[in-house]
Amino acid sequence: MTSLKKVVGALTLTFIFALLVSACSGENTTGSNTINVVATTNFYGNIAEQIGGKHVTVTSIITDPEVDPHEYESNVTTGKLVAQAQLVLKNGGGYDEWMDKLLSASPNENRTVVTAYDVAPTKLEENEHVWYSPANMKAVANSIAEALKKLDSTNASAYDTNLKAVNTALGQIEQKMNSIKATYAGTPIGQTESIFSYQSNPMNLKVITPEQFQEAVAEGNDPPASVVATTNKQVTNKEIKVLVYNEQTVTPLTTKLQNEAKANAIPLVSVTETMPKDKDYQNWMLDQLNALESALKTATGK
């Protein structure tokens, strides 16, 4: 069965490649003069929309919070979009490797690719979720603006103006993080996985959940029994004040941990890996930080 699956997969890739080659003329699928932008995930696409405004047509491949970007499987439609894109935005760092395959299948020297992981100034070890850092997103936004100006120098001033607005809004996220840090630095919290470390670390929150537990959950593996026991004990003994969990990575272990936290009156804060459809990047992050601040206030009385 595995061999048959590999054969079918190879034939599918070959078929996609044939379609991509025929489609890679670089023509804009909208038939307008806007720049064709394709992003692997909606949060990068949203930043491109904010900077590009009416001068861009943005397609984000992953927009459903229920879809795990790690496990996404591309198709012919996605391949054609990438082949015709003038600007591609991807995370990199092993997060969206399927995009690398599509780019290789439709080589185009006129296409610009911005890889967030490569331009991000802050990277945590074995943690590719660089978009959770507003400082990293400022770097990504700057790279997107530069790419748009090279593709469309006529509207360079518009891109610069929009970039300033984006960076101002990203600054509001940093201000909220600084406010939380000023009041709650050193507060012990738990995390079901490390995606939130790009914010909990700068806020100086004391994450005591074992790294082995967080990494195993993020990778879809079972942590060692001793690590699970330690993590559960931190909750039952109320060693943590708040539990932050990724609602897109749900396992029996994380569900059990959430239930134990509820039973011990420990506030829960949910975060998501991809942006909800009804928000922009900045509001998404601010809403989560506001929820965290409220939970910390409830737990500490500060």
Rank of each mutant, 00 (worst) to 15 (best):
P65I: 03
Y159K: 00
V76D: 00
T40V: 00
E71C: 14
N46A: 05
L292T: 01
K90N: 00
Q199D: 02
G52Y: 11
G92V: 15
S157L: 07
T168W: 15
T254R: 09
V130C: 05
Q258E: 14
I16V: 12
L257R: 04
T12Y: 02
E193T: 00
L163N: 06
Y245N: 01
E273R: 12
L20H: 05
Q175H: 09
E193M: 01
A18C: 02
T209K: 06
A263M: 03
T12D: 10
P252A: 06
I47A: 10
A139L: 13
R111M: 06
F17D: 14
K90G: 01
V130G: 07
A105K: 06
P223I: 04
E219P: 04
I51H: 02
A291R: 15
Y44R: 04
I144V: 13
N246E: 09
Q175P: 11
L103C: 12
L253A: 12
P224S: 03
N108I: 01
Q199E: 11
G301I: 03
E109G: 08
N221H: 11
P65E: 11
K150M: 10
Y44I: 03
V7C: 05
K123L: 04
T12N: 09
I61E: 11
I180K: 01
T209Y: 02
W98I: 03
T30R: 15
N155E: 00
T161W: 00
L257S: 08
V244A: 13
V58T: 11
V227C: 14
E73H: 09
A18H: 03
P65Y: 09
T254K: 11
A216L: 06
L11Y: 00
L296W: 01
D64W: 10
L102R: 14
A141P: 14
V271K: 07
V67W: 10
A225M: 10
V37W: 07
M99W: 09
K164W: 11
A10D: 07
E71L: 14
I240K: 02
P267N: 12
A39C: 07
T2A: 08
K206H: 10
I61A: 08
K101F: 01
P210T: 08
S157W: 00
N162Y: 05
T57L: 01
